[in-house]
Design a binder for these strands. Structure first.
Length: 569
RNA sequence: GCGCCUAUAGCUCAAUUGGAUAGAGCAACGGACUUCUAAUCCGUAGGUUGCAGGUUCGACUCCUGCUAGGCGUGCCA
């Protein structure tokens, strides 16, 4: 496929050059030639608007430019071109010979699991940091969305050759975990019968801490009351972080996301890195003292406000360990670092990028994407953010529990991942719970999975009828004459380009859309045409190769999304 | 006030990153199981792409100004 594309590119380039040399096309140089697969077969297989782009500089009508270019195309040189056509305002439509379709099926059958992968990123190391929720409670659904997106982006980057890893930054230091320790202390003492205690300002009210504190009380009794409050808060802080982080890991594993590296903020703070960063900033004169605190000259980097890096109490604000953390990422040798942050962190994107700049790192080394918020809605679009089950803000676990009640544990994670992945990252996601829990035809996840299961089912039937797939060289694809068959093959051919653009643009949602479109061609085909047909075995063999290719692409695509490809449903 | 994100069919979203007649699913209506799985298919209907300008051969896409919603905004992370 790619070879044919570059062949056609060269032919068109040659034609334009010949037209310039003959003086018919008054432009200085051969331009970039954009071309893409067409939306509809009526426009051929590949089309280019290059003549439209040249209209201005050549001061000619686009259609006549296209005519001149086509006149100079040497069709004998490229057996893959069946026909050339000028259409609409001046598009050049290329019709490929049927060999092209054969080539695609051959490529897929040869490559199998590897079909769709690429090499553009070979030799480059990428780190994606995502979820990174505070270890002060269970993961919420936005974290779930980030987990699905980050996990898939890593899959995509690895598929196109990068060496990408998943990393989780554990915010186990600072004021929030202090509040956590204090909150657990209150719950612990309440569990022992103490009255008139209140969760401190900024503390955590959730039931999960009551349960945790009750477990401690049941196990250790009042042993900890002998400690000073300060000692107790510190102890509970550490116990709480360990417990809640453990819970988060369990949730993530259930969701099919496994991080390669967990980095502790506390460890970063305890290292010498933050001091070194401050030292470096001081040397570069990025810092000044005011109002008892130390400030960073953020305005020098174009922001409208400076910001505090050392508080009046002498502690670093989170910026310092954060800058140190990113410097540490650089030291670990990543060519590119991507942070996926939650919607409440958007104010920090510019500051973070500025700190990275202040560290002397390249502008495009750090990429920050915001994973926007998730609303749960019903089919009428009404918001439903509360969990029925727990009567509280929905957590990732309770979402999967609800889905599991409806579609079974087997598909609950598949459905959740699909719904999180089907929208662009920077849009607010309306998660239609009603649609997600329908096990019926409307659910797009099942639509795709069912297509895969149907492919498998054909092979199962074939085995029962003693029909085996023939080696590809003994099959004649000329028998695939149905319009649906050509449409399917054209769609299969798009897959590698979709994977590539999806990885490079960080737009994971293109994969679910593509798979849905592919299934949307397969199902009608399946309904109208029989694959296994004893009265026409030669065509059966050709169709089996086609079905095998469809199955391969569906399976490869679902794997990128971390969604199962069931053999039966 | 300032900054970021968003606005496309009744609802939820696409649109190969500036290309041809803006496409899907859901919801609505009417049909198809003696067939490799009906979790499927076929058909009907649904649009001034928030508004107003501009750039371009060509704009959902880029620029300017409005309107509406979400989020953020110097010592939490």
């Amino acid at each position: 496929m790619d070879e044919i594309k570059s062949e056609i590119y060269d032919i068109l380039k040659g034609a334009i050059r010949a037209a310039i040399e003959s003086g018919e096309l008054p432009i200085p140089d051969v331009p970039e030639i954009p071309f893409s697969p067409t939306k509809t077969p009526e426009h051929g297989d590949i089309a280019t608007p290059v003549a439209l782009g040249l209209a201005k500089s050549a001061k000619m009508a686009p259609r006549s430019i296209a005519e001149i270019i086509v006149k100079h195309v040497d069709c004998d040189k490229c057996p893959h071109i069946r026909d050339l056509e000028i259409a609409g305002p001046g598009f050049i439509n290329v019709y490929l010979s049927n060999e092209w379709l054969d080539d695609i099926l051959r490529t897929i059958v040869d490559a199998q699991d590897a079909y769709g992968s690429g090499e553009i990123g070979i030799g480059k190391r990428v780190q994606i940091e995502f979820v990174s929720a505070n270890p002060t409670g269970p993961l919420n659904i936005v974290s779930g969305r980030a987990a699905a997106v980050g996990d898939t982006l890593v899959n995509l980057l690895n598929a196109v050759g990068y060496e990408a890893i998943r990393e989780y930054y554990v915010n186990d230091a600072g004021g929030q975990v202090e509040r956590l320790g204090e909150s657990i202390d209150v719950r612990y003492r309440q569990a022992l019968g103490e009255k008139n205690l209140k969760i401190p300002e900024g503390g955590y009210q959730g039931e999960y801490l009551q349960e945790f504190a009750q477990t401690i009380a049941a196990k250790e009794g009042d042993a900890y009351l002998k400690l000073s409050q300060e000692e107790r808060v510190e102890l509970f802080r550490d116990k709480g972080v360990a417990y809640l982080l453990g819970q988060q890991k369990v949730s993530l594993e259930r969701f099919g996301v496994n991080f390669d590296v967990w980095t502790s903020e506390k460890a970063i703070r305890d290292s010498r890195k933050p001091d070194q960063i401050i030292e470096m900033f001081r040397e570069k004169d990025y810092l000044y003292e005011a109002e008892g605190a130390t400030w960073f000259r953020m305005t020098d980097f174009g922001d409208d406000k400076d910001c505090v890096v050392i508080r009046t109490n002498g502690e670093y604000t989170y910026f310092v360990p954060d800058a140190a953390y990113h410097h540490d990422k650089f030291d670990r040798g990543f060519d590119k670092v991507i942070d996926l942050l939650g919607p409440d962190h958007q104010g920090h994107v510019t500051r973070l990028k500025n700190f990275v700049k202040a560290l002397g790192l390249a502008d495009d080394w750090l990429e920050v994407d915001i994973i926007q918020q998730v609303n749960l809605v019903d089919s009428d679009g009404n918001r439903r953010d509360m969990s029925k089950r727990q009567g509280q803000f929905l957590t990732l676990d309770s979402l999967i529990d609800e889905l599991a009640d409806a579609v079974g544990e087997r598909f609950a994670v598949d459905v959740a991942r699909y719904f999180f992945l089907m929208r662009a990252n920077n849009t607010h996601l309306d998660f239609n719970l009603e649609l997600a829990v329908t096990q019926a035809n409307e659910n797009p996840v099942f639509y795709i999975q069912y297509a895969h299961a149907r492919c498998c089912s054909i092979f199962q039937q074939g085995r029962e009828q003693q029909i085996k797939i023939k080696p590809i060289d003994e099959v004649s694809f000329a028998l695939l004459t149905e319009a649906h068959e050509h449409e399917l093959i054209r769609k299969l051919a798009e897959f590698p380009a979709i994977v590539l653009s999806s990885a490079e643009e960080r737009e994971a949602h293109r994969i679910p859309h593509y798979l849905h479109e592919l299934a949307g061609i397969f199902h009608p085909y399946y309904n109208q045409h029989r694959v296994l047909d004893a009265s026409n075995m030669e065509r059966t063999y050709a169709r089996l190769i086609l079905i095998q290719s469809v199955q391969t692409v569906l399976a490869n695509g679902l794997k990128l999304l971390g969604i199962s490809a069931p053999e039966s449903m």
